[in-house]
């Protein structure tokens, strides 16, 4: 095994306000969003975190990106602990989620250079990388257009390019195709495979079965904060389609029929 990411006993609880209790339909003061999650991701693979809405995917990825701290457990990314070495972790990963936005006032080119500077990328290296990735995603045309004037698809492509300014070995994408038109979604899934071909490790969360079936080497199925199955795609599916298998797992996890 050549694990580049090792997650052990990762747990996250949220305190619920009265309003949230009503929204969640619960009397409990606490919500365990991620419950004792353990898994490993190997170097050079695409790992899919599959689960319905509210399963805890975003919370897990946010902990891996050190935006929020786990209540228990840890994860090591290329040796660095997300609990004790957050800055080192952030230098190693690229993180993309629809909740992280680009400042509307600036142009993709300005923001690319700004984030490159925060990652201490040498100006010459930054320029070369920018040329290449802007060409790959057809951003050149829009490089000097303010983000506010870009289409959703173009914004997502710019975000993707910017999340990779420091050429990280590990990339974490939270629902990367959500809200995108089919063409842009296709560009993104193709790019995930390109990144793998470059030897990068990719962790991607999604609720879309086809995305997992198409690109993932291994998959972890997460329901209600718990890992219900984890392994190579074929192993997890056990002869069924991923969708059928998922509903079996879901029924087992919530203790009823889906």
């Amino acid at each position: 095994m050549n694990a580049v990411l090792t997650v052990t006993g990762l747990t996250k609880r949220f305190h619920l306000s009265a309003r949230q209790q009503r929204l969640e339909g619960t009397r409990s003061r606490e919500k365990i969003a991620v419950n004792d999650l353990s898994f490993e991701v190997d170097r050079g693979e695409i790992f899919g975190l599959l689960g319905p809405n509210g399963a805890g995917k975003t919370t897990t990825l946010r902990m891996l990106a050190t935006l929020i701290r786990p209540d228990a457990g840890d994860a090591r990314i290329d040796g660095a602990s997300i609990v004790t070495q957050p800055e080192a972790v952030r230098a190693k990963i690229g993180f993309l989620t629809s909740e992280l936005k680009l400042e509307e006032f600036f142009t993709p080119r300005y923001l690319y250079d700004f984030f490159a500077a925060l990652h201490h990328v040498e100006p010459a290296v930054c320029a070369a990388r920018r040329e290449a990735i802007f060409a790959r995603f057809g951003i050149h045309e829009f490089a000097e257009t303010k983000v506010s004037n870009l289409s959703t698809g173009m914004k997502q492509k710019a975000s993707l390019a910017i999340s990779l300014v420091h050429d990280p070995d590990i990339v974490i994408f939270d629902e990367p195709t959500n809200g995108l038109d089919v063409l842009t979604a296709r560009t993104v899934t193709d790019y995930l495979q390109e990144l793998r071909a470059q030897g990068k490790t990719i962790i991607v969360s999604t609720h879309i079965f086809s995305l997992v079936e198409k690109v993932c080497d291994r998959v972890g199925v997460i329901v209600d904060g718990r890992m219900t199955a984890c392994g190579p795609l074929a192993e997890v599916c056990a002869g069924k389609s991923l969708e059928d298998r998922f509903f079996d797992l879901y029924a087992e996890a919530v203790g009823g029929t889906a």
């Binding site: 990106a65 050190t66 935006l67 800055e87 080192a88 952030r90 230098a91 990963i93 993180f95 909740e99 992280l100 936005k101 680009l102 400042e103 509307e104 984030f115 925060l118 990652h119 201490h120």
Partner: peptide, 17 residues
Amino acid sequence: GEKERGTLATILVTPTR
């Protein structure tokens, strides 16, 4: 403003302290 628009979090995922 930056927090509300989600642009501050984008900086929080860089190694910047």
